[in-house]
Amino acid sequence: MKRIQLGEFEEIVLLTVGVLHGNAYGVTIKDEIEARLNREVTIGALQITLRRLEAKGFLKSRTGESTESRRGRPKLFFEITAYGKKALDYTKESRDELWKSLPKLVLKLK
């Protein structure tokens, strides 16, 4: 299998898309991250990350309906693909692996 690599922000975006489940498009993703993680997200950074994830095959998108406040511009909804899920799993596992092998001593020292 190709090595899966997720950046920190990529991982957050991917997880958030999952959290929003079916209602994930630009503005909602931005709001969700800002609310949960208390950090500012610019549209620019978010958009490239979404596109990059899509290009890597972790996300898929479909054009959705519009609202009055969007003045007719469609929403682009994102969804995690199976491959994306695998990537999240892999990332989590590898982190857990690392956590487990961390000597207890080190943590206590903190």
Binding site: G26, V27, K30, I43, Q47, R51, S69, R70, R73, K75
Partner: peptide, 15 residues
């Protein structure tokens, strides 16, 4: 290909 929905997001945020 990115333009339409990004513009939509911007409109929504602008409001």
């Amino acid at each position: 290909s990115y333009h339409a929905d990004i513009e939509g997001d911007l409109h929504e945020l602008y409001d």
